[in-house]
Amino acid sequence: MDSFVNWSLLALSAPGWGGVLLQGFLHSIEIALGGYALGLLLGVGGAFGKLYGGPVLRDLLECYTTVVRAVPELVLILLLYYAGTDLLNQLLGLVGLGTVDISGLMAGVFVIGVVQGAYSTEVLRGAIKAVPAGQIEAARAYGMSPAKVLRRITLPAMLPHAIPGLANLWLIATKDTALLAVVGFAELTLVTRQAAGATKAYFLFFCAAGALYLALTLVSNLVIGVIERHARQGFVEQR
Rank of each mutant, 00 (worst) to 15 (best):
E73Y: 06
T85Y: 05
V109I: 13
L79H: 07
A83K: 06
L78T: 12
L92T: 08
G96C: 06
V100Y: 10
V75C: 02
A107V: 00
Y81S: 06
V75Y: 01
I77F: 01
L91G: 12
L105P: 00
L80E: 03
Y82K: 11
L80R: 03
E73A: 09
V109C: 00
M106P: 00
L105V: 10
T99R: 15
D101I: 07
Y81V: 02
Y82E: 04
F110G: 03
T85D: 06
L76R: 05
L78A: 04
G108N: 01
S103T: 14
A70Y: 09
D86T: 13
F110S: 06
R69V: 11
L105W: 03
L92C: 05
Y81F: 14
Y81I: 04
L91M: 14
P72E: 06
A107H: 00
G98P: 06
G96F: 03
D86F: 05
V75A: 06
A70N: 13
I77V: 11
G98Q: 13
L94M: 12
L87S: 09
L79P: 00
L105M: 05
T99N: 15
S103H: 08
T99H: 14
P72S: 08
N89V: 08
I77L: 13
L79C: 13
P72I: 13
G93M: 10
L79W: 15
V68C: 12
A70H: 10
T85H: 05
L91A: 15
R69C: 09
L80N: 01
M106I: 14
E73P: 00
N89G: 09
V75L: 07
L94K: 10
L87V: 15
L91V: 13
Y82V: 14
V68E: 07
T85W: 02
A83N: 09
D101Q: 15
L92I: 04
V95L: 12
R69G: 08
F110P: 02
M106Y: 06
V71D: 02
I102D: 07
V68S: 07
L91W: 13
G84S: 05
Y81R: 03
D86Y: 07
T85R: 10
L78R: 05
N89R: 05
L92G: 11
N89T: 12
T85M: 11
Y82F: 12
L74N: 09
L76Q: 11
G96P: 07
L91Q: 14
M106E: 09
